[in-house]
Design a binder for these strands. Structure first.
Lengths: 206, 206
DNA sequence: TAAAAAATCCTGTTTTTACAGGAGAAAAAT
DNA sequence: ATTTTTCTCCTGTAAAAACAGGATTTTTTA
């Protein structure tokens, strides 16, 4: 059996050290190195390509989601497993959309990491227990899909602009902004702007 | 020189493993164990008391901030260092108010962990580099201090209740709620409720 | 116990949202 | 090329929030 060559990208050194320590005595795993940001990850990949990357989702500067997309398009053979503390549907979905093959929450133990690596290397998808529950259990509480304009308006609302101010800024009519606002409230099933902003920030849209 | 007996509470097993791995060959450090939640931490302390606890701030069920308060009041001799991914003034301050002696961000390396432990054991306070910058640099952007009632009203606003509904719920007048709302906007320097909720969620108040 | 802070209540006015119900034009997807 | 989605605009009304400027009574804290 071939050894799986593993690389890790995470801005938390202690997480890198933890996973390294957990995997160092595993026969099927070969540790190829680590990076603490997107840039040094890409630099490494120019010289050497691992079989699999464990990739933290929240990195400084360029996010794990963007990095995932970039790595996946330039090196489609490399399998990627998302890594995060956040057990949120939106994050998991974004990673998978951008080419990840699996998702591990950072509270997992050695077994789940190994199982994840093994499963993903067999061209199958893998989610750690809790993450799997999240994507299955509440398909009702799905995040609404916003249009480009709606996102734009949402951000300006959060910034404190009134409908009139938003209208002036976007060179559209006051009534158009009102319509977008109406649609935002409807999509989020929010009674008013307080709930809207609350939901939006908690789902990482702001 | 006495060895420092270190205990760690963190719900992420890989972080525990990482710190353990980093500290295991250090002569001045004695590893006494770990817990992944507040309950098992308290259970451990009943049997044995370490010199220092590295305590994650975001734990399931009871938060690190509450646990910190509890440990500090029951075992005042134990030194506590807060541990977190979040470099936010509010979190750092809350931990320090509740009896912590230092604060480490999870992106630190071995040196800062050791320096932190050493410093705190000498009855001094310690903040990791980036955390120290945060508490020093922007004393202007301080979080407003809310009263009990204001917090209550803030939460109900975020839940989508109108002034009248909040008034009914709290058995106070509509005008009182309006005053609290006014004061909240003033304290946060927010133009309207959208900005208020945005700031409040981003600062962990909601 | 005196001073400070917090919580309560009030009258008004203006501005902004929220809600209802359409509808045409431009872009995008099939 | 046609359907669907998105973006745009409109009229009108009711409800709620924001703003101004007080004032009294409880609680806390020094």
């Amino acid at each position: 059996m071939m050894k799986t060559r593993v690389f890790i990208v995470d801005d938390h050194f202690m997480v890198i050290e933890g996973i390294k320590s957990l995997l160092q005595n595993e026969a099927e795993i070969e540790w190829t190195g680590h990076a603490t940001n997107a840039e040094s990850c890409m630099a490494f990949l120019k010289r050497e390509q691992p079989d699999l990357i464990l990739m933290d989702i929240s990195l400084p500067e360029k996010s794990g989601i963007e990095l995932c997309k970039e790595v996946h398009s330039k090196y489609p053979a490399i399998r990627i497993i998302g890594l995060s503390t956040f057990n949120q549907r939106s994050y998991i979905e974004k990673m998978m959309e951008n080419g990840a093959s699996g998702y591990l929450l950072k509270n997992v133990g050695k077994e789940e990491i190994l199982k994840g690596i093994e499963t993903v290397m067999q061209h199958k998808k893998y989610f750690s227990h809790e993450a799997a529950l999240t994507i299955r259990s509440n398909p009702n509480k799905e995040l609404p899909i916003l249009t480009r304009r709606e996102k734009e308006v949402l951000e300006l609302i959060a910034a404190g602009l009134t409908n009139q101010e938003i209208a002036d800024k976007l060179f559209i009519s006051y009534t158009t902004v009102d319509t977008h606002r109406k649609n935002l409230l409807q999509k989020f099933e929010a009674k008013n702007v307080a709930v809207l902003i609350n939901l939006a920030t908690k789902n990482g849209l702001l």
